Simulated assay, not measured.
Amino acid sequence: MNKGDVLFFVNSQNSPGSSEKSGGFHLSEAAYPYKTITEAGFKVDFVSPEGGIAPFDGVDLDDTVNDWFLNDKAARKKITQTLRPEQITSHDYPAVYIIGSLGAISDIENNGPLQTIAQTIWENQGIVASIGYGYAGLLNVTLSDGSYLIDGKKLAAPGNEPNVADNALSFTTKMLREELEKRGADMVRAEPETDSVITDGRLITGSGTASASAMGQTILKEFKKYLYQVDLR
């Protein structure tokens, strides 16, 4: 049995559908929260649709946290030996963090087992967090009453409105935002390259990679609050 504190969702596919764009998650979006949470004494596990090696990009070795993550044996093992959904017992995790990428849009959006994990953690009064395109993992999560998890919740809006109509990346961002709004999400827009993080109860969302450090700190803060309230330790 795997038992941890925070479960990180990452995608398995390296590209979104037939796109030639990289679909790996941005390393900082995993590295910063992972370092913050584990250095506070909590355990992090990674799960992906297929398990095994998870693709990533955006590596900046001049970034001390990126460099630390790739040189830390335990952290490296986490992203090269990710768990499969069937290896996860949702009740063992009080918090889930969904890491975004273009690959996540095709790989996680309609993954039933991962959606069930997120639903179970939320309905167990746990914390659900997401960054950037990680919204693909929240988009279709429904609760036991049939409502969308994100309905009526404030979310940090991913990206900006497209400046060029045929820019695939911007168009994907716009489409994702519109789909979130159709499901009742209240999107809170931020300026580009800011560390916008929005907390709405137990739901924490970050606008993108610039939010990675603040996401880790916010998840840790809310997680400690959760532990205190339910007296788990």
Rank of each mutant, 00 (worst) to 15 (best):
N14F: 10
S18A: 14
I98Y: 11
G132L: 08
S12M: 07
N124W: 02
A210Y: 09
T120Q: 12
V47I: 04
A185F: 02
T36N: 13
D151K: 14
E179W: 13
G132T: 00
F25A: 04
D107P: 09
G159E: 11
D107R: 09
F25R: 09
P162N: 03
I79Y: 03
A104T: 12
D60L: 07
K224L: 15
G137D: 02
A54K: 00
N124G: 11
I121Q: 06
M215H: 09
E50V: 07
K73H: 03
I219M: 04
S90E: 15
I150L: 07
T82G: 11
V230N: 06
F56C: 06
T199V: 15
Q125D: 15
D63K: 07
L149M: 12
A190V: 03
Q13A: 15
V10Q: 13
P55Q: 01
T82P: 06
E39V: 01
T218K: 15
A185Q: 05
D107H: 03
G103L: 05
A104M: 11
D5K: 03
A168T: 00
L176D: 05
G137Y: 04
Y148N: 14
A136G: 15
N163W: 00
N124Y: 02
A168E: 15
G201L: 11
N140W: 08
R177L: 06
G216C: 12
V59T: 10
A95P: 15
K3H: 04
Q125E: 15
F42V: 04
